[in-house]
């Protein structure tokens, strides 16, 4: 019941977001046609504005946009004239999506075991080494990690291609660049969660019952210790799936992160609002899924 209510609540929320985003981009100084190569004559500019209905009052423009949205139309891009926003998203989303999923799997695959392992060996050298590694990868921005990987593995040793998005071989360096940071974050959260859980009373009970240490750690503790990672994975996955500018730009990957930044810089109104909405939908749906999973994993949690 609670979740049905929340799903219904998404609709006004998304509407509000679309409205705010629409106002925000239109409040930006300059318009989408300011960066044309030659300064357009007043007539041409007037025609352009009229064609995209930019000469109308803002609320009327928003009404028109919303009407299109309800019919599944995100409108035309104002920068790339022959493409609709839907086209551009349809072209970029699969790329960003696959890179995001790969980076997500990588960060979970590395982060969860690392956090688990360091927490189990608390205050021993394994812990210090592993926790230091997790902290270090968080502190090295992809702007440094990416170029370093390219210089070493692509230019110096020529093991991997420098850039582009073609074969599975092209995927490895971007996935590492993107995934290592999140692996560090996941490891730290898992570490904290595990330490907090191992102090709780039900673990003492399980020990008193004489269960094996493996079963206590994996079956009882892990299930609750993973909850902080779970809450973090919603926003993290939303960021990863909708594309990340630095990595896409470094490796020349045609994803949505680049579109998000460029459209904001170019004041490509429809494109920005479309991408903001896409991000919002992904984030809100993921957060819903996260809360639902939370309920399944932790029987103490009840939502009303």
């Amino acid at each position: 019941m609670y979740f049905i209510k929340r799903i219904l609540f998404l609709i006004p929320l998304l509407w509000l977001i679309s409205f705010l985003a629409f106002l925000l981009v239109h409040a930006m100084p300059g318009g989408p046609f300011d960066r044309e190569r030659t300064p357009a004559s007043p007539e041409i500019e007037h025609h352009l504005l009229a064609k995209y209905h930019l000469d109308e009052p803002i609320l009327k423009q928003y009404g028109r946009y919303l009407n299109g949205l309800l019919h599944g139309d995100f409108g035309p891009s104002m920068k790339y004239r022959n493409h609709s926003v839907t086209d551009i998203i349809a072209a970029g989303l699969p790329v960003s999506l696959s890179l995001g999923v790969l980076a997500f799997c990588f960060s979970m695959g590395v982060g969860l075991p690392l956090g688990f392992f360091t927490a189990v060996h608390k205050a021993r050298w394994q812990d210090y080494l592993g926790s230091l590694a997790a902290a270090v990868v968080i502190c090295v921005p992809s702007l440094v990690l990416g170029p370093m990987l390219i210089m070493l593995f692509a230019i110096k040793w020529r093991w991997f291609p420098v850039a582009l998005w073609a074969s599975p071989w092209h995927v490895i360096l971007p996935t590492l660049t993107l995934g290592l940071y999140f692996a560090g974050r996941v490891a730290r959260l898992m570490h904290e969660g595990m330490l907090a859980t191992l102090h709780s009373e039900f673990i003492t009970t399980a020990r008193a019952k004489g269960l094996s240490e493996t079963s206590i750690l994996l079956k009882h503790a892990f299930r609750l210790a993973v909850l902080p990672v779970l809450s973090y994975s919603g926003p993290m996955l939303a960021d990863l799936l909708t594309g990340t500018f630095v990595v896409e730009n470094l490796f020349q990957i045609p994803g949505l992160g680049v579109s998000m930044v460029n459209s904001s810089l170019n004041a490509d109104y429809t494109m920005v609002v479309g991408l903001v909405l896409l991000y919002a939908v992904v984030l809100l749906v993921l957060n819903l899924a996260v809360d639902f999973t939370h309920c399944l994993l932790d029987p103490r949690v009840r939502y009303e």
Binding site: L13, L16, I17, L20, A21, L24, V25, A27, M28, P29, G30, T242, F245, M260, V261, S264, L265, V272, L275, V276, Y279, A280, L283, L284
Partner: peptide, 18 residues
Amino acid sequence: DVLYAMPTVVFVIVLVTA
């Protein structure tokens, strides 16, 4: 909540260019 659901990149770019 509403601000959370918007990508910060867009926000920052709009703000700083403005």
